[in-house]
């Protein structure tokens, strides 16, 4: 489903990822864990196609196609979704309008009929209920005045509406109290399925108590330095990243 080979990424002329390899089979949930500055967010942005994240070597194969040549919106329409670590506030753009045009852009691309206002609202209500979110969110500007938890839940709501094949969740657990974390985790779990591949990018193990991954990878110094089962996360929690950081620097 997703195969990253020898990925080198530069930001502001500085190489952050130094040959990252990662493979995630369809329908699995993998976690990439790493300390601050290891390149986690760079990986997430490179997958989504952010300007300024220059891929200088390697490739990202998604459903057999190279993602790196695609614009962010093309990737989105092909089923790639990035849940932001810091969801952006956009004053003046109403959630419902934005989401409806996003969904319809994706649907057009897939050759599906566009949703009209009523169909859209019906779907949105159903998904909001699932995530235990207030319908009022739809008429508010995107993320404006939202609490940290609301912003993260809004990301998961968008994900549920856009129905991606590959979801990359960048530090979706950061800044959440335990109740909010549980709600977000439930949301993610409800979206697990054989057709959906999920990549959790996180610093801490605690999200993985609620969203149990099939595999855990340790990212240090711009490379994957170790991969293993879910117990690897517990090991990291107990011992910290110090050994990996040292090994990566060696």
């Amino acid at each position: 489903m997703l195969k990253i080979e020898d990925l080198h990424v530069e930001v502001d002329n500085r190489e952050i990822l130094h040959g990252l390899d990662l493979e995630i089979p369809k329908g699995e949930v993998h976690a990439v864990m790493g300390p601050n500055g290891s390149g986690k967010s760079t990986l997430a942005y490179a997958l989504a196609g952010r300007d300024g994240y220059a891929i200088t070597r390697g490739r990202i194969l998604y459903q057999g196609r190279d993602l790196t040549a695609m614009a962010p919106e093309e990737r989105a329409r092909e089923g790639v979704f990035l849940a932001f670590q810091y969801p952006v506030e956009i004053p003046g753009v109403v959630n419902a309008n934005f989401l409806k045009s996003a969904i319809n852009a994706v649907r057009r691309h897939r050759g599906e009929a566009e949703l009209d206002a009523i169909e859209f609202l019906k779907l949105a209500r159903q998904r909001l209920k699932l995530l235990n979110m207030d319908e009022a969110l739809l008429s508010r500007p995107i993320n404006v005045g939202f609490s940290g938890g609301e912003k993260k839940r809004n990301e998961i709501f968008q994900m549920s509406m856009l129905d991606p094949r590959l979801a990359v969740l960048d530090e979706t657990d950061s800044g959440l109290d335990i109740d909010a974390l549980k709600i977000v985790a439930e949301g993610v779990n409800s979206l697990r399925g054989p057709d959906r591949t999920i990549l959790l990018v996180t610093h801490y193990q605690r999200l993985l108590d609620y969203v149990v991954p099939d595999q855990v990878h340790v990212l240090a110094g711009g490379r994957i330095v170790k991969s293993g089962g879910k117990e690897l996360a517990l090991e990291l929690e107990a011992k910290g990243y110090a050994d990996f950081v040292k090994a990566a620097a060696a």
Binding site: A48, G49, R50, D51, A71, P72, E73, R75, A76, R77, F81, L82, F84, P87, V88, I90, V93, F98, L99, S101, A102, I103, A105, V106, H109, I142, Q158, L162
Partner: peptide, 15 residues
């Protein structure tokens, strides 16, 4: 706003 622009595009909205 470059961030907002990118955010919208990651949701499938064209440039």
């Amino acid at each position: 706003d470059e961030e907002a622009f990118f955010y919208l595009r990651t949701r499938g909205v064209g440039e």
